[in-house]
């Protein structure tokens, strides 16, 4: 290499330019999707409602398999069964916190052998809007919806638990009725092999992957009434294309 080379052909220039992709950090930081060294922006989390998961009590950093306070697959299956029995409607759908929901004064179901402290069952409030007790050591998702249409009460409301089981080749429940503007804590699990439980939200989707016997929690507030397609986005076998459910947001 010669000293008389133009700056644009020098090693330092080319070597530095090679790190050009790293410049994208600025866009990430602006949206709060990357930590800043001296200033923490939560813009993205505030606007999108996507918060980093705070580990629950007793939950290890790897997700806490088998850790105290976490939900085991058996817990999930029992809760799911109770949930289905409680909210199933005569037409086969499952209505949670909607006009079709059970009477407002419904009481909690007795759960044999259930650790009530760690995982209270869902209940329905007086107005027919589902709420759920909060886990003792659970995460309180920070909700500051950006959509003006969201009812004000959703910001304070506790999420209603909703259980969704994915299996070859369907979901249980596969017809769900919920209310807009209200937080629902989706607890989801695949019972056999890996599935997706992605939500088609009109313009785009929220892609969710479920590993067998791993309980996934997502607290979701739907802002627009209408049907939401739930579909499997991980190939799971011959009838994969037909694996779907519907959420009807009232």
């Amino acid at each position: 290499m010669s000293d008389s080379q133009h700056v644009t052909t020098r090693r330092a220039f080319i070597g530095t330019l090679g790190f050009g992709g790293v410049a994208l950090y600025g866009a990430w930081a602006a949206y709060g999707a990357a930590p800043l060294p001296f200033f923490h922006s939560r813009a993205f989390e505030k606007d999108n409602g996507i918060t980093p998961h705070q580990p629950q009590a007793g939950e290890g950093p790897g997700g806490g398999h088998g850790a105290a306070g976490s939900m085991t697959p058996d817990d999930f299956l029992r809760r799911h069964e109770e949930f289905m029995a409680r909210f199933r409607q005569p037409d086969g759908s499952v209505a949670v916190g909607s006009a079709e929901a059970p009477p407002a004064h419904a009481t909690q179901l007795p759960v044999a052998g259930h650790d009530m402290h760690a995982m209270p069952p869902p209940h329905v409030d007086q107005g027919g809007h589902g709420t759920a007790q909060r886990d003792a050591g659970g995460t309180a998702p920070m909700h500051t919806p950006s959509h003006g249409s969201a009812p004000a009460h959703s910001q304070e409301a506790q999420p209603t638990d909703l259980y969704l089981l994915a299996y070859r080749f369907g979901f249980a429940p596969d017809d769900i009725r919920i209310n807009s503007g209200q937080p629902y804590r989706f607890r989801m699990m695949a019972s056999d092999i890996t599935h997706g439980a992605s939500l088609q939200l009109g313009r785009g989707s929220r892609i969710i992957r479920l590993r067998p016997n791993v309980v996934v929690e997502q607290t979701i507030v739907f802002h627009r009434p209408g049907p939401v397609l739930v579909y499997c986005t991980t190939y799971c076998g011959p009838a994969h294309d037909a694996m779907k459910a519907r959420i009807l947001v009232a």
Binding site: G63, T139, P141, A150, L199, V221
Partner: peptide, 8 residues
């Protein structure tokens, strides 16, 4: 049209 939090 939805807010989602948590990937647990």
């Amino acid at each position: 049209p939805a807010d989602v939090s948590g990937t647990t």
